[in-house]
Design a binder for these strands. Structure first.
Lengths: 93, 93
DNA sequence: TCAAATTACGGTCGACGTAAGGATC
DNA sequence: GATCCTTACGTCGACCGTAATTTGA
């Protein structure tokens, strides 16, 4: 599992559509599809049901979404906890 | 930042020595040294003081260690939460 | 000189993007 | 046929391990 996979997963969950998630993340669709598949295989379960409109969270997916969001939020917190300037602050110098 | 970097960082912090951490992680020393440097650069701060005996946590390092451990623990929790359905996934259907 | 970290370097594995291939409506 | 997701395939960057270098007691 990687943080990128979690970011991809959350984006897909929020967009309900891999194509839109890809656009939002500024990558093409295949990487998202592949990373999602890889994540599902590692977890040993299916997170989304694939539909013709896009994808839809399954119960395991909903559950995992909470974890993923919490982890990513704490990563952000960890980054900024060192009292170091944010990206925008650093640019402003 | 990657989860691997966090794992390496925690191991180095606990061993106080990159060589021992490498042995524990079953990798060679250079990857740990490189990933640590990369992490420090991304965070914009130094996490360890390098000594001839090994390395020693600096204040920023101690602070970051808490975050890293919490993140890694939650990753484990996320992985295992799907195997044994917990009560946290009881929400609006 | 010893022990530890770091840097150099070559090779391998992984991830991306374009393109092609299903599947469902 | 249109719109998704997925698989194929070639390329490029990232990471590893061995080896060489640096640094400090």
């Amino acid at each position: 599992m990687s943080l990128v996979q979690l970011e991809y997963f959350v984006a897909i969950a929020e967009e309900g559509n891999i194509g839109r998630a890809a656009k939002r993340l500024h990558v093409s669709q295949p990487p998202l599809s592949r990373q999602l598949k890889s994540l599902e295989e590692e977890l040993g379960t299916t997170l989304f049901a694939r539909t013709t409109r896009g994808v839809e969270l399954l119960p395991h997916g909903k559950q995992f979404l909470h974890h993923a969001r919490r982890i990513l939020a704490q990563v952000e917190e960890a980054k900024h906890s060192l009292g170091q300037p944010s990206d925008t602050d650093r640019e402003a110098q």
